[in-house]
């Protein structure tokens, strides 16, 4: 009996139930748990047919391709998520009943688009771009009462959802949304959609890293950072970002400005030059860091 394992607590009870079979002498065990194995040779062909007929073969091939395309850090979790989404899409699991309302349909579309967008990290640009394309198609498909094409409202909804799920504080990402949102009634072309999605994901990662940086600066007891230190880091970052405009050679310069040496110098100067004032909170730090990033984003329209 190799049924699908249940979550632990109930499995534990199952362990109690299974005591008896466990006491059977070990000799009878090979194959005991898997009756299919002994028949395998004879039925291999029919099993292959079966798998092909019910669509398992195609389904797994598609899943494997997605895994290879996205190269996720944890492919098994990725697969679980992949099949879960597929299950939600198929009518079988939706249950019989009246067709879902317009609002629900819209939610489903958003969910599906989000799922595609998250399949690959934005640094894997070609996989990410493919997925952005698929998400765009998902959202702009026509329906019974929906004309084909993507409007500004749906696009803004999606941006807000991504930011919300990205766990970045609202006031931090709000300026970005103001910059890259479209008007509700506007049609959103693919190029704008792609740029918007990419910017949004990059900003979220930027904010996450800024958060990690803040944790390093933070006084563990007080949960706030020294303003002089925080400001010095932000100033260094700003300087580097300004230097980084243009030719690739200048990226190197920007990188060296952020290197440990120059950062340490900046911190040193800051601590020496100014007197301590009121501390800097996490929100303030993130907001200021994000503002540096957002200033570089070209507004839509």
């Amino acid at each position: 009996m190799a049924a699908l394992p249940a979550p632990l607590p109930s499995a534990k009870m199952a362990a109690v139930e299974k005591r008896r079979p466990a006491m059977v002498p070990a000799a009878s065990f090979p194959d005991g748990g898997r009756p299919a194995v002994s028949r395998a040779a004879a039925t291999a062909e029919s099993e292959e047919d079966f798998l092909r007929q019910v669509g398992v073969t195609d389904m797994l091939r598609a899943a494997l391709l997605k895994v290879l395309e996205a190269r996720p850090e944890e492919p098994i979790a990725f697969l679980a998520h992949y099949f879960e989404n597929m299950g939600l899409r198929s009518p079988a699991s939706g249950g019989a009943g009246e067709p879902p309302g317009q609002l629900l349909l819209q939610q489903q579309r958003l969910g599906r688009a989000l799922w595609h967008l998250r399949l690959a990290h934005h640094s894997q640009r070609s996989a990410f771009n493919t997925n952005v394309g698929v998400a765009y198609e998902c959202l702009s498909a026509g329906g019974r009462r929906k004309r084909p094409g993507l409007d500004g409202r749906t696009y803004s909804d999606l941006l807000r959802r991504i930011c919300r799920d990205g766990e970045a504080p609202e006031e931090v990402v709000a300026p970005l949304l103001r910059r890259i949102q479209c008007r509700d009634h506007e049609a959103v072309p693919l190029a704008v959609f792609r740029a918007g999605m990419l910017t949004c994901f990059v900003l979220l990662e930027f904010v996450a890293r800024a958060g990690a940086l803040y944790r390093l600066l933070e006084d563990p007891g007080l949960a706030v950072a020294d303003r002089r230190v925080g400001q010095a880091v932000l100033d260094t970052l700003e300087g580097a970002l300004q230097a980084g405009d243009g030719a690739p050679a200048r990226y190197l310069e920007a990188g060296s400005r952020l290197g440990p040496d120059s950062l340490a110098q900046a911190l040193d100067r800051a601590l020496g030059a100014r007197r301590p004032s009121h501390p800097m909170t996490r929100e303030e730090f993130l907001q200021k860091a994000a503002a540096l990033f957002i200033a570089k984003v070209k507004p839509v329209g």
Binding site: P5, I76, A80, G87, S90, S93
Partner: peptide, 19 residues
Amino acid sequence: ARFFTEYFNSVCQGTHILF
């Protein structure tokens, strides 16, 4: 799809090895 979802979820949770 549901079957595979549960299978891969149980692998993630580590309950797939029971019995």
